[in-house]
Nucleic acid binder design. Structure first.
Lengths: 129, 129
DNA sequence: GCTTGATCCTGTAGTGGCTACAGAATGTAT
DNA sequence: ATACATTCTGTAGCCACTACAGGATCAAGC
């Protein structure tokens, strides 16, 4: 059994974030020592690492929570997992598309923006339209 | 002089957002009619459209505000505009890179996830590590 | 003149997912 | 004994809106 700081180090989840997950009911309340400090088991740390990986993959916290529940349920329902993941992939691809268009638009805007011009063409472009 | 609803329609900025911009001091307080309703000039609408375009290009609101100030200053300082824009382009490209990697990681995860498996390999992968 | 419905007003609270305190109580090392 | 690190609770801030609640006013039709 380890303290919250060590659990944070081992899982990569920040201390404040761990307490936040607890408040939100995303992870169960851990044991407490006699001095009221939280005590984490290896399983607790495993949950945190799972959540960390989900979040790093860009899943919304609500999805991460669902995935964790699925992961701990007796029947690991692969269909539900697939659906969540595929929806998320679609959303990631949409974001990439949007940002790619944005990038093109920004590149075009700045391309016309020569250094030191008195009336900046980029501002003119932003005003126009 | 038009009311806030019409200014919203003409600029594409939502009514609540217009009032928010006013509260935040991003646009000046507009005139008021005798009945206390806001009255917008063509210039006011122009400002809102400018902000809308900046936001659509993904500039943070703080940058949009700076760009608007630059746009209205006597000496349209093209250098500052370039710097803001180039920083923003870099951040957009970083986001694209990150999402592209994410997309690959997610694709790999789901590729192994056959339909209806009892122990979902994606969950196994999220647990491992 | 009256009703209906649209528009507007102010003020406050919620969103997501943390993050950063404040202020107090412990624990650990010298 | 002292210094410093860690933990505790509770609250507020971040970004950029968005969504109410509860009320006032306006415009159009009858």
């Amino acid at each position: 059994m380890i303290a919250i700081g060590e659990a944070s180090r081992q899982s990569g989840v920040g201390i404040e974030t761990i307490r936040y997950y607890e408040r939100e009911g995303i992870v169960p309340e851990p044991e407490r020592a006699a001095n009221n400090r939280r005590l984490y088991s290896a399983q607790d740390v495993g949950r945190l690492r799972f959540l960390k990986r989900c979040r790093d993959l860009g899943f919304p916290l609500a999805d991460a929570r669902t995935l964790l529940a699925l992961s701990e349920s007796r029947s690991a329902d692969c269909q539900s997992v697939r659906k969540l993941a595929e929806d998320h992939i679609r959303s990631v691809r949409r974001k990439i598309d949007a940002l790619t268009k944005l990038n093109a638009a920004l590149a075009e805007l700045t391309a016309n923006c020569a250094t030191g011009t008195v009336d900046c063409p980029m501002l003119a472009e932003l005003r126009a339209g």
